[in-house]
Amino acid sequence: MTRPIPDLPRPRPPRTPLEGRYCRLEQVTPGHFADLWHAYGKDTEGRIWDYLPYGPFESRDDFFAFAQATYLGDDPLFHAIIDARTGKAVGVASLMRITPEFGVIEVGHINYGPPLQKTPAGTEAQYLLMRRAFEELGYRRYEWKCDNANAGSKAAAKRYGFTFEGIFRKHLVVKCRNRDTAWFSITDDEWPAIRAAFESWLEPGNFDEAGRQKIKLGADGTRLHQQHQQQQ
Rank of each mutant, 00 (worst) to 15 (best):
I82W: 03
A69F: 00
G87F: 08
V107R: 11
P56Q: 07
W144Y: 10
A65V: 03
R140K: 11
H79F: 10
G138M: 06
G103I: 01
R85K: 15
Q126P: 02
E58H: 09
F134P: 15
F66T: 06
E106H: 11
T70W: 04
F57D: 09
T123N: 12
G113T: 08
G91D: 06
D75N: 15
E106A: 14
P100V: 00
D74L: 01
F64H: 13
P114Y: 05
Q117C: 11
A89K: 12
I81D: 05
Q117M: 07
I81G: 06
R97I: 00
M96G: 07
Y127A: 09
A65P: 06
G113Y: 03
A89G: 13
D147M: 04
N150Y: 11
M96L: 13
P120L: 03
A149W: 08
K145N: 13
F102Y: 13
G108A: 08
T70I: 00
W144N: 14
G122C: 07
F57N: 10
A80F: 03
G152C: 11
T119L: 03
I105R: 10
E136Q: 15
C146F: 05
W144Q: 12
G152K: 15
G122R: 09
G152Y: 10
Y71P: 03
L95Q: 14
E101W: 08
Q117E: 08
A149M: 14
N111W: 00
D83C: 08
I82S: 11
Q117V: 03
E135N: 12
Y71V: 00
H109F: 05
L137N: 06
A69H: 09
R131M: 07
D83H: 14
W144F: 06
H109N: 15
A67C: 05
F63W: 07
P76E: 07
P56K: 09
G108H: 09
A65I: 02
E101C: 05
P100S: 07
R140V: 00
D74H: 06
I105C: 08
T86R: 12
S59E: 05
N148K: 10
G122V: 00
G103T: 03
P115V: 02
D75M: 06
E136T: 11
G91V: 02
G103W: 04
P56H: 06
F57C: 08
G138W: 01
S59N: 09
E136M: 06
Q117L: 02
R132E: 01
I110L: 14
P120T: 10
L77F: 03
W144D: 13
T99M: 07
A93E: 07
F64C: 07
F102Q: 14
G108F: 02
A151R: 15
N148E: 14
A133W: 04
Q126L: 05
P76W: 03
I110W: 09
L95Y: 07
F64D: 14
K145H: 09
L77M: 12
E143N: 15
A125M: 07
G122M: 03
F78E: 01
S94I: 01
